[in-house]
């Protein structure tokens, strides 16, 4: 059984690495984003292999269902999708420098974990009193509201602030942002420009429009 698991792991890992390589090498931005989705999916499969079902599902829900969609949406709104004629960091010393920097940063994050982790050793039976490993939804939820309450709250506040910021940006000068007047608005505006209201209109109350001229007989007959 272990061999089967290892083979499956190998396949998934190959998918992830291959997809990741494709993400940074293909020129077409859409294809890159699609490979990124494949990569996310592989990570979800890895979680499933580790029997972390909740994490796997959340990975799919958040990364495949939301983040990648946002990425694709952003791409859709850009003009040069195919990437032809776009200067990229391909070849030359820039490429190697970038690669080295990112590898270094990744190493800083991962090396201590790799060194300090005791591999292939069955976990000792936990002494009574230690918290349960984070696996199920209930445990995860409990951990969020008991152990990691501060972090959870800070993340929540951060997200709320970001949301409010987005709304503020979107609503800034909302009336001035509109460029396209409808015919009725344009007509009304022209009318007011031609005949400015004699008195200052009270706030919130639109000024009374000048009465429409009665239709003369000649106009109707023509």
């Amino acid at each position: 059984m272990a061999t089967v698991i290892q083979i499956i792991f190998g396949l998934i890992a190959a998918l992830i690495v291959g997809a990741a390589v494709m993400v940074v090498t293909v020129r077409n931005v859409i294809h890159a984003a699609l490979w990124l989705i494949a990569c996310f999916f592989g990570v979800g499969a890895l979680y499933l292999l580790l029997e972390a079902e909740f994490l796997a599902v959340v990975q799919v829900l958040v990364y495949v269902g939301a983040i990648s969609i946002l990425i694709l949406f952003a791409i859709m709104l850009t003009r040069q999708v195919t990437g032809e004629g776009v200067r990229q960091l391909v070849g030359g010393w820039r490429l190697w420098l970038t690669a080295a920097i990112s590898a270094l940063l990744f190493a800083v994050a991962i090396v201590p974990t790799v060194i300090s982790h005791s591999w292939n050793v069955p976990a000792p039976p936990a002494p009574p009193g230690t918290p349960e490993p984070l696996a199920g939804v209930a445990e995860l939820g409990r951990a969020f509201v008991y152990e990691f309450l501060l972090q959870f709250q800070v993340a929540g506040v951060l997200l709320t602030v970001a949301l409010i910021g987005a709304i503020v940006i979107a609503f800034e000068e909302r009336a001035r942002r509109r460029r396209v007047l409808t015919l009725a608005e344009e007509h009304e505006l022209r009318k007011r420009l031609a005949h400015p209201p004699p008195v200052e209109a009270p706030a919130g109350e639109p000024a009374p429009a000048p009465r429409a001229t009665p239709i003369s007989e000649g106009e109707v007959q023509q």
């Binding site: 799919v60 495949v64 969609i69």
Partner: peptide
């Protein structure tokens, strides 16, 4: 629902 969100892609 996680799976159903994939079809948006």
């Amino acid at each position: 629902f996680a799976i159903s969100s994939i079809s948006a892609v």
